[in-house]
């Protein structure tokens, strides 16, 4: 029997770090701001007190070098967890990630092992604008040799992070900013294996294949659509690489309709990969072409009215489902959306 308790995503991530650090002395956590009083939105709080400054420490602002340092430590037998308060800063480290981290094992003929986790925060905040809002999961997954994880529930934040730390490959672990306050049941004994999608909600009308925050939006859309008898099925991809094609294909073959809702730009994005999988493998079963939802094809704007148009949301999903099924538009007046936006306050 597992120990189940209700906790926030933030506490679930924190607990995963604590448990792995207790279990394995080679695990350490480093990166800008991990050791200060705010501790990356609370996710690294208490680690210094529990494990000391050797195992949880801040760094200079030197993403490129620090990523190389993480890699060097990993091929020398440690298990670093390198943390970034914004995934956008990983773009400063792309040389180490895409030229080194993803290739060294291959080029060593399998002799080098790279047990390394890069945690980074994605998504909306208080007007995060064009340089603090990128998702990048599709870009990372493009490079063979990197695993990429996009958890949504507290249980997955916990279970997938533990699995990622134990994995002997480099894992990019991307956490949406608005998830930290979401609460859910977490079973401490349950790790979640990489490479397995989850069916968040069963339905027969349409399969919604979702990444990260889009799962939250999809659940909201599902609730509204269910009132008129439209039951959508939600597949939470959870790990971009390795990708669980079977769960996606199984669901699409059942519902015969597929909408991909990716938390990223559409053009050349991971959504295209998902759409290709569904189209290729469910070709004969699909009643309509696969639809894709994602960010508007512009840099992320700051001002809220444009930002709300930039991001796909529950209303976008509802409209897409209606269009795909040839249904009349639901009257959405009186519905409350953006509940997290109402709760979320600045300044960051």
């Amino acid at each position: 029997m597992g120990i189940k308790s209700l906790m926030t995503f933030r506490d679930a991530v924190n607990l995963a770090l604590v448990r792995e650090m207790e279990r394995d002395p080679s695990v350490f956590v480093f990166g800008l701001d991990v050791a200060d009083h705010k501790g990356i939105f609370g996710s690294t709080q208490g680690l210094v007190e529990k494990f000391g400054r050797e195992r949880c420490f801040g760094t200079p602002l030197s993403e490129d070098a620090m990523t190389g340092v993480a890699l060097g430590a990993a091929i020398s037998g440690l298990r670093p967890v390198h943390v970034h308060i914004r995934a956008d800063f990983l773009l400063l480290a792309m040389n180490q990630i895409a030229n080194m981290m993803s290739t060294l094992r291959y080029m060593s003929g399998g002799k080098l092992t790279i047990p390394l986790v890069v945690r980074a925060v994605i998504g909306r905040g208080w007007g995060q604008s064009a340089q603090h809002s990128k998702s990048l999961h599709g870009m990372f997954a493009h490079f063979p040799g990197l695993k990429v994880v996009v958890p949504t529930t507290p249980q997955d934040g916990y279970g997938l992070l533990r699995a990622s730390i134990r994995d002997d490959n480099p894992v990019i672990f991307l956490e949406h900013r608005w998830l930290y306050d979401i609460s859910g049941e977490v079973d401490e004994n349950e790790t979640v294996p990489l490479g397995r999608a989850a069916i968040r909600r069963e339905g027969d009308a349409v399969t919604l294949v979702c990444t990260s925050w889009m799962n939250v939006e999809a659940l909201k859309a599902a609730e509204i659509l269910a009132r008129r008898g439209v039951e959508v099925e939600i597949v939470d991809v959870r790990t971009v690489m390795p990708l669980d094609e079977e769960t996606i294909v199984g669901s699409v073959n059942r519902t015969r309709h597929c909408i991909v809702a990716d938390y990223d730009w559409i053009f050349c994005g991971f959504g295209a990969e998902l759409a290709a999988v569904a189209s290729q493998r469910c070709f004969g079963r699909l009643k309509q072409p696969v639809e894709r939802l994602g960010f508007a094809p512009v840099p992320c704007p700051t001002t809220r009215p444009l930002e709300n148009l930039f991001y796909p949301s529950a209303p976008t999903i509802i409209r897409a489902v209606e269009k795909l099924l040839g249904l009349e538009e639901t009257d959405l007046r009186g519905e409350s959306f953006y509940s997290y936006e109402q709760r979320f306050k600045g300044p960051f």
Partner: peptide, 16 residues
């Protein structure tokens, strides 16, 4: 305030 009359039309915000 994120308004159209700002230098970035509200697209920039404080940081840009």
């Amino acid at each position: 305030y994120g308004k159209l009359s700002g230098p970035g039309k509200g697209k920039a915000g404080s940081m840009h």
